[in-house]
């Protein structure tokens, strides 16, 4: 399967990457990692790309890492549709101090707009 993982510069994204790498190795999928442009993120796009490449290298997994410009949700859905991907994977939200799951606006946009199957990583 041709899988696209979308992440922003957050710990949630790196956790999603680590779990997706595990799954990719098990399933023998092809993985592309897209780092979206979220200016308010903890890490810059460049730093996130570097971090993703380290995670992939440590797992000895070959995968393309690229950046996407523009609105994060929209650019991700657009790239997933036009890049011939079977599945779009994103982080499954953060937890509040109470333990409530919180989905951000990128996840909401992707869920409501993607024409590919979407996987939320928890």
């Amino acid at each position: 399967m041709n899988v696209l993982l979308g992440i922003a510069g957050s710990d949630e994204g790196i956790e999603a990457l680590e779990k997706t790498v595990e799954r990719t190795l098990e399933a023998g999928d092809d993985l592309t990692v897209a780092v979206v442009d979220k200016p308010e993120a903890e890490r810059s796009q460049e730093a996130t790309v570097e971090r993703a490449e380290v995670v992939l290298a440590e797992a000895d997994l070959e995968a393309t890492v690229r950046t996407l410009e523009g609105d994060p949700g929209s650019s991700l859905v657009d790239f997933a549709e036009h890049g011939g991907f079977d599945r779009l994977v994103i982080g499954g939200g953060t937890e509040s101090p109470m333990g409530k799951i919180r989905l951000g606006p990128i996840a909401e946009f992707v869920l409501l707009n993607a024409t590919t199957t979407v996987t939320l990583v928890r």
Partner: peptide
């Protein structure tokens, strides 16, 4: 339940209560 809480099953409920 709302947004994943409370968890289900006594063990997970207990973990959650011990945390919060």
């Amino acid at each position: 339940r709302a947004q994943g809480i409370p968890p289900t099953g006594e063990d997970r409920v207990r973990d959650w209560i011990e945390t919060i």
